[in-house]
């Protein structure tokens, strides 16, 4: 079974995010770049499916040259090869533009299953996986926390509002990941050594036959970034006993904050 994982490199969740002088991008200094946590689940699940069904795992990413590091990490976890689409025109691309590019890149590769993250923790768009499925005319199963591939079909347990459901579809399918799916493995030292020799192709938009104008003028554009109002330490509630403190707290919540 040939599996493709859509993987994005993002700032780690511990990173402090500061707005750059241009007002629309973030300062690159001090940011630790990692595999999007939801895409890590995708890599792990792809490897587990390959362990059972054989085949290959290909990592596809669109971004800066730097994103090659994230692909190498996934190769070190055990993926077979990587494709990085890097092009200056991607700089301004919105989610739909990214999906257009990824769909083109995926089309050139054999695949029965595509796995994406439910969202990237930088833009929190929840968009690209669904849009790639739509562009490829593939069934989409989102927010999957358990799956099984059998006889050309996939059965997935997925999160919905207020619970979960089990769904089934014939392959090929694109599914997106939800926490609980697995515990991603760490890249081992031998894995890291091996990854250095695994194929990682870098492609430009021209290589994929995408006209940069098609994605360079996005319909969704960030025109300004601001920091949310800073939360500061408020009032400490004092009291001799738990009962006293509780009474004092409930009083301020009722009378001052008016939330109860």
């Amino acid at each position: 079974m040939d599996i493709i994982v859509l993987l994005k490199q993002v700032p780690s969740t511990e990173s402090m995010i500061e707005i750059d002088g241009d007002g629309v991008s973030i300062k690159p200094d001090g940011i630790k770049w990692v595999i999007n946590p939801y895409d890590e689940f995708a890599v792990e699940e792809a490897l587990r499916i390959r362990e059972v069904h054989g085949g290959s795992v290909t990592i596809v990413s669109a971004g800066r040259e730097k994103a090659a590091e994230a692909i190498r990490t996934a190769l070190a976890m055990g993926a077979d090869k990587g494709v990085l689409v890097a092009d200056p025109a991607l700089e301004n691309c919105d989610g739909l533009g990214t999906a257009t590019v990824l769909a083109k890149a995926v089309k050139e590769l054999p695949h029965e299953l595509i796995i994406a993250g439910q969202r990237a923790v930088d833009d929190d768009n929840f968009l690209v996986g669904a849009a790639v499925a739509e562009k490829l005319g593939m069934p989409l199963i989102s927010m999957v926390f358990k799956e099984e591939v059998k006889d050309g079909k996939i059965t997935c347990h997925k999160t919905v509002d207020g619970g979960s459901v089990v769904v089934e579809a014939a392959l090929p399918v694109l599914f997106t990941t939800q926490r609980g799916l697995n515990e991603p493995r760490y890249a081992s030292l031998p894995g890291i050594m091996k990854a250095k020799k695994k194929p990682l192709d870098t492609k430009s938009l021209a290589d994929l036959g995408v006209n940069p104008a098609e994605v360079g003028d996005p319909k969704t554009k960030v025109v300004g970034l601001k920091t949310p109002p800073e939360r500061t330490a408020g009032q400490m509630i004092e009291g001799e006993s738990a009962t006293e403190k509780a009474a004092a707290l409930v009083r301020v919540l009722h009378e001052e904050a008016k939330v109860i």
């Binding site: 700032p11 969740t13 402090m16 995010i17 707005i19 973030i26 923790v121 930088d122 833009d123 929190d124 319909k219 969704t220 554009k221 960030v222 025109v223 300004g224 970034l225 601001k226 920091t227 949310p228």
Partner: peptide, 18 residues
């Protein structure tokens, strides 16, 4: 123009829609 949290709410982005 829509305002949306990004980076897990560490930043608020004004996004223009066309």
């Amino acid at each position: 123009k829509a305002t949306r949290p990004m980076y897990g709410g560490k930043v608020l982005a004004d996004v223009q829609l066309e």
